[in-house]
């Protein structure tokens, strides 16, 4: 908690004060709920990245761009379809429709991308897959910039009109949380937790209960062996790449309402970097690891944000520095990640 850079001195009373403030139930509840809310969205975004890497050995650098596209498409639909008179129920209902539409659109787009662009370079070194997807991300970002600015919307920092389509009971403090913990926390975080949990269960069931989920899990261990057992692994690749793209975009739709993000072209790289942190800490290719790592990153994020907001630490970059430090430390201590297999990535 000491920040050497701003020459902040920490004296005993202050430390004691911090601790006592931290251990108040309302503080803990705030940090935890906001952290889990953030974690839910990080998970939705990162799970696609980790599935694609696990099965195909491709670190998809266009992943953040897909989230950005999702955020913008979601924003466009919400802004166009809603009026200021629209009620909370309409807004939530439309949001769910948007999630479905964006998921379908981007899953299709991702599959097409895999067939057209990624497939020809499977036999090259992983570097070229990184380069290709990175280039695709850059193109998407620039296209978004062009389209958005031609409509008179600032591509940076955020498109606040889309952010503002969130119903009041989600953008403001939640009554439920207030009655439970006696503390004002944005309803959005609770909404994110519930949605994230539903999506996580859905992905989990897909992986464990469906035939394709089985092929994907087997393929993550040994794609050649799966092929030799009579399964068209390339088809599985296409499906997973499509699903990963769709999930990233769904994460983007959530970011559209997120008070700290919102639609902007900056999502391309910012989201990408956060997703990397989560999947690397959890272990590339691991469902369980991604879940745990998302919670770690989310709670670390909300804890450090709290430290800064309350003035305990005066260093404004604390949350970001912490998250990237987590990445570095995780790679030093346990490069394969929390739940990664030793030889993962040895495709």
């Amino acid at each position: 908690m000491i920040d050497p850079l701003t020459h902040a001195t920490v004296d005993a009373p202050m430390l004691a004060d911090t601790l006592s403030r931290f251990f108040q139930p309302d503080t803990l509840a705030r940090i935890l709920i906001e952290g889990l809310g953030k974690a839910a969205i990080y998970f939705i975004i990162a799970i696609g990245l980790t599935l694609v890497f696990g099965l195909m050995g491709i670190l998809n650098f266009a992943h953040g761009a897909f989230a950005m596209v999702g955020a913008y498409i979601g924003g466009v639909i919400m802004v166009v379809a809603l009026s200021s008179a629209s009620g909370a129920f309409t807004r939530i209902a439309l949001f769910i429709v948007v999630v479905a539409v964006v998921f379908a659109l981007l899953t299709a787009a991702g599959s097409a991308l895999e067939i057209k662009l990624v497939r020809p370079i499977y036999d090259r070194t992983p570097m070229y897959q990184i380069l290709l997807t990175f280039g695709v991300g850059l193109i998407l970002e620039e296209l978004a910039r062009i389209i958005v600015s031609s409509r008179g919307i600032q591509p940076e920092p955020t498109w606040s009109a889309a952010q503002a389509t969130i119903p009041g009971f989600l953008s403001g403090p939640s009554d439920v949380l207030n009655s439970l913990f006696g503390v004002n926390i944005r309803g959005f975080y609770l909404f994110a937790i519930v949605s994230g949990a539903i999506l996580a269960v859905a992905v989990y069931l897909f992986l464990t209960r469906t035939l394709y989920g089985l092929y994907i899990r087997a393929g993550s261990e040994d794609p050649e062996m799966v092929e030799a057992l009579g399964i068209d692994v390339r088809k599985a690749f296409t499906i997973v790449f499509g699903l990963g793209t769709g999930l990233a975009a769904v994460g983007g739709v959530f970011l559209m309402w997120d008070p700290t993000w919102g639609p902007s072209v900056m999502l391309n790289l910012d989201v990408l970097l956060y997703a990397f942190v989560v999947v690397v800490i959890g272990g590339l290719g691991s469902f369980k690891g991604t879940l745990v790592a998302a919670v770690i990153v989310g709670v670390a994020d909300s804890f450090t944000t709290w430290l800064f907001n309350t003035g305990i630490v005066a260093f404004s970059g604390l949350p970001e520095v912490t998250i990237f430090l987590l990445l570095v430390i995780a790679l030093i201590i346990r490069p394969q990640g929390l739940y990664g297999v030793e030889e993962v990535g040895g495709h």
Partner: peptide
């Protein structure tokens, strides 16, 4: 070349 993280049943199911 087993699928180490799949159960015996699942290993057979893939085939």
């Amino acid at each position: 070349r087993m699928f180490g993280y799949l159960t015996v049943e699942e290993n057979l199911r893939v085939a």
